[in-house]
Write a protein that binds this DNA or RNA. Structure first.
Lengths: 187, 187
DNA sequence: GAGTTTATTGAATAAAAATTCAACGAATTT
DNA sequence: AAATTCGTTGAATTTTTATTCAATAAACTC
């Protein structure tokens, strides 16, 4: 047991190190030796834990895909309040639990171009937009949000969030914006 | 003369092809052979026109850095109208003059991590935020924009725009959002 | 504690991609 | 039209980076 736990620990350490480097420097600019050095361990040992660099990325993206769903509306909170609250939590993670924050950033980056195709597909398989689109539709019905194509509004909302989070990931000193600013894009 | 013009034409063709591929697939996922094939020309010839792949990127970024300044306020248009108009134009470029649009996307991407450091520095040297911050400050004075750290607001504004443009670059069928949505982030 | 499995290393190898180059055809000059 | 320069190619080379591997140490099983 201790042996297996040890292994899991180390796997996790590698994953977190890779996540950090992938987000801070980019997947392609992060060399396998950079990850090994940062963990730290020998490069050879890294392949004892993960088949390949791409496999490492795919495992991260799979984790990220599972951890999604927290944006789902709970109960009867008004849509704008729900989104505002969600963003507030997300932004506060940037300081407290960077890996949650980084995972979000990574997922967004992988979903776009510039990464190995297989990883992209995993990230693309989860539907963030649809979920938020529902929420926006509800908000429109209540007269809280302005009119417009809900899917487009959802995409813009998340694209903005992604853009801001990438900026925050790059510049550690940047303060988080007020969630209201972003939500007001929908009002 | 015809000879030199010919050369300039070809250089431009390479630059535009590279710009497209860099934005659509990402710098690192674009192989030098992909560019050559797309132009089309042999891989060897490409090095007759550009020293290296990185040099090619740097030339693009330098071009992009020079073409900046259109966001500068002209005359006495209200800040919100100015920004709305600017975005409207930018988004319409996405269809009409994709390379202008792509250049914007590339500049943003290069400024962030994941690209060769030298290129990053060129992109980082131009100050987009400061210019918009002035505009926002003016808007605040007039009571058009809400209170808040103008630099942060400026960063968030551009981060949102960048995020949305990257989304549009990836998904050609995506409609452009209404510029008002984004500007309302500041109101 | 002998034997087996697992962790670890760093140098050797393989794979992928950028870059060079010798050769040739086309244009330009004289 | 001979000589020279420039454009062009694609295969060979170099460089970079991922991946393997033989050897060793440590942990665990019996």
């Amino acid at each position: 047991m201790t042996r297996k736990e040890q292994k899991e620990e180390k796997r996790k350490a590698i994953l977190m190190t890779a996540l950090t480097l992938f987000v801070e420097r980019g997947y392609h600019e992060t060399k396998i030796t950079d990850i090994a050095e940062a963990v730290p361990m020998s490069t050879g040992l890294l392949f004892h834990y993960f088949e390949s660099k791409e496999e490492l990325l795919k495992e991260l993206v799979t984790m990220g895909a599972q951890g999604t769903g927290s944006a789902r509306p709970t109960g009867d909170v008004p849509p704008d309040v729900h989104l505002t609250g969600f963003l507030g939590q997300l932004f506060s993670y940037a300081k407290e639990q960077p890996w949650v924050f980084y995972m979000f950033v990574l997922m967004g980056q992988v979903r776009r171009a510039g990464m190995p195709e297989e990883a992209r597909q995993i990230a693309a398989s989860i539907d963030t937009f649809g979920m938020t689109a529902e929420l926006i539709k509800a908000g429109q019905k209540k007269g809280i949000f302005h009119k417009g194509d809900v899917l487009l509004m959802s995409k813009c909302f998340w694209a903005s969030v992604q853009g801001i989070m990438e900026e925050m990931a790059m510049d550690k000193d940047m303060k988080a914006p007020s969630p209201e600013w972003i939500v007001s894009m929908l009002k």
